[in-house]
């Protein structure tokens, strides 16, 4: 009975985030335009501009390499955008309302992380479909594994968002932190360039190989271009998958910790 009730509550909190995402039509439109221009113009121009053959074997060109990068970056960006939602909820007193409900903190946090992750995942599904079509010839196994990885990644990023926003408890700090994080994490990852190119600037290389975005995007690339890409990826596929799982478990646990131990008794600045 208790477990069933917890599950129901968890589903309700996940639903809360799904509803919020549904209302953000502006954000959806903006990201769709960004995505369309990225895959049609930016990626094509960039692939014409770079010398990629020197790094990879036959069968993988920069355009296909970058397509999965665009998908990873849009999923990351949409998942981090939850930060602004949560900050707004704090300012509107909704977080206090949630804390006042007869719900376990753990369930509340898990529900929000899963809901936010699910919302980002569902929202980017059409874009994932377009990327798949542009890549062509993907195996069902690769598609299923990529979707599972994408959902896990999105939940992990929302866990990160909840941990940070609920710790700093400041709208301004949230804006600055996530603006900078979005700019830096994407550029210091293997979204635009393979790790081997980054290795020429040592600090960037180490930042990229420890960056969860790199692990996620390279895992996707390995799923689709296994033979061609495995030598370029930041790590071994099993290690990348483990890293991703650790990222999700660690950050969702961090969010639970913040909500259970740090959030209560503190105001919003």
């Amino acid at each position: 009975m208790g477990a069933l009730s917890d599950l129901r509550t968890l589903a309700l909190f996940a639903y809360w985030d799904l509803l919020r995402m549904r209302r953000r039509t502006m954000f959806v439109a903006m990201r769709v335009v960004w995505f369309a221009l990225q895959v049609t113009l930016f990626a094509l121009a960039l692939s014409a501009m770079v010398r990629f053959r020197g790094y990879v074997s036959q069968g993988l060109d920069y355009y296909h390499f970058y397509l999965l990068g665009v998908y990873a970056s849009i999923l990351f960006s949409i998942s981090t955008s939850n930060a602004y939602e949560v900050a707004e909820e704090f300012e509107e007193g909704i977080i206090e309302y949630h804390l006042s409900l007869p719900v376990k903190r753990r369930i509340l946090t898990l529900g929000r992380a899963i809901g936010g992750g699910l919302a980002g995942f569902i929202f980017t599904l059409p874009m994932f479909g377009i990327v798949l079509a542009l890549i062509g010839g993907a195996t069902p196994w690769a598609v299923a594994a990529s979707l599972a990885a994408a959902l896990a990644f999105s939940i992990g990023v929302v866990g990160l968002v909840l941990s940070i926003v609920l710790s700093v408890k400041s709208g301004d700090a949230t804006d600055v932190l996530f603006g900078v994080l979005d700019a830096m994490i994407v550029r210091l990852s293997t979204i635009f360039y393979p790790a081997v190119v980054l290795s020429k600037v040592a600090p960037y290389y180490y930042a990229a190989v420890s960056n969860p975005v790199s692990h996620f995007v390279d895992l996707l690339r390995t799923f689709f271009f296994f033979e061609e890409y495995r030598v370029l990826a930041v790590s071994d596929p099993a290690i990348m998958a483990s890293y991703l799982l650790g990222f999700v478990a660690g950050l969702v646990s961090a969010a639970v910790y913040v909500v259970e131990r740090k959030l209560e008794g503190g105001g919003w600045r």
């Binding site: 770079v50 990629f52 790094y55 190119v197 020429k200 600037v201 960037y204």
Partner: peptide
């Protein structure tokens, strides 16, 4: 800076 190593 990074892409500089890749561009034609």
């Amino acid at each position: 800076l990074v892409l500089n190593n890749m561009v034609n």
